[in-house]
Design a protein around this nucleic acid. Structure first.
Lengths: 120, 120, 120, 120
DNA sequence: GTGGTCTAGACCACT
DNA sequence: GTGGTCTAGACCACC
């Protein structure tokens, strides 16, 4: 997994978001075992405690669960994962609108540019 | 200015892009003086040589020009800036499509989601 | 405040419960300022991080909120506090039933003993 | 046996109460041999002298007796044990009333809550 | 000074 | 080995 951490926002939050993204995109498939806290932490180059927090929050949202000494499993509740997908998509849409707005494009402009993209 | 540097692409390129973005969005208005290389480098936390390269490339694209001891000025060629705006917008559009595709959305889905966003 | 910590259960959980109890019983009145994390931690004889966690969880439940540099305030949502009171009461009732059951008393016995208590 | 010692009351008293509780609930059955003072003290993590005091008081109440080199035996006087059961039950009842009172419940409230518990 | 976050390192219980 | 918890100590942003 590729980790992209900027400061100015809590690292654990960014980790959580990126793991959630990985769950939705299939990096961590439904029902699969997640790497251990220590593995993930080493991979991302953060302290295990920080990664632990990210995973705890993820678990609180019902996206994974710990299975004792077996590690953590991605939830098998596909409805929950779909809900997450929609939430992330909403955010992508909003970021697109904001990005275009910063360039001086209105909401209508943003739609038009997107539609015109096909014809190229 | 807020610098957001990831490490898997050339730093100077990312710097160039972000300064270009600043020119388009008005952080560095048409005809205004850019901060010095050393200032920018210190602000971004990079080596002045790296920032120098970013600015040289920017100058090569005609988006700014050195005026001897006065530092660098943003171009006053609004047509050039508009072209840059359109280029960046194209990239934003493409990134949006890619982002949605990673979530499993087709091009048509991406348009629909964008159109539905207004109704919320 | 009197802290009563047993091991074999997470300390942060016990801290949270006891602060919640304090909110319901008026030790920390509605809308009042809570002592700082460091004060509470020193008072309870635990690490500030542990107390921090207890308070974060309390905040997540909407029972208090941080007000930047002003510290934490107990919520003013009396309905929420009443709900907490009912939750704690339920637990007290259950503990009573369990306690009596361990002594060999049935549920009906437990009620009878309670009713007879008045006549003494 | 699980020992739960708080520090604002004499340790020996708490030990005595908990052993008495164990006699009533069957952890130490009627007529059975109690563990040695040293065993009990080690288990509870207290000084043997403290445990010795707890057991002496218990013996003074007639709930157990030393049998020379054989250690201590729980009394076989079931009437005495039943009396103890009633005494402890009275205390449980009182603690329940106090606990509910701290939450703002009257004696009548405490009875009502207990009766309503069944219907859930 | 406040809350919040992060790191480092330790301990424990355990499908 | 795993997750979970706890401690110690540090840094930051905000007033």
């Amino acid at each position: 997994m590729e980790w992209n951490l900027s400061d100015n926002r809590p690292i654990w939050l960014q980790l959580k978001e990126q793991i959630a993204h990985g769950i939705v995109t299939g990096t961590y498939p439904t029902g699969a075992r997640l790497p251990s806290v220590r593995e993930l932490a080493a991979d991302a180059g953060v302290n295990p405690n920080t990664m632990q927090r990210a995973l705890s929050e993820l678990e609180r949202d019902g996206l994974c669960r710990s299975v004792g000494t077996m590690g953590r499993m991605v939830t098998e509740d596909t409805e929950k994962i779909d809900a997450l997908r929609r939430t992330i998509a909403k955010d992508v849409v909003q970021q697109y609108i904001i990005g275009m707005a910063r360039l001086g494009y209105t909401y209508a402009d943003a739609i038009r540019e997107l539609e015109e993209y096909e014809h190229e």
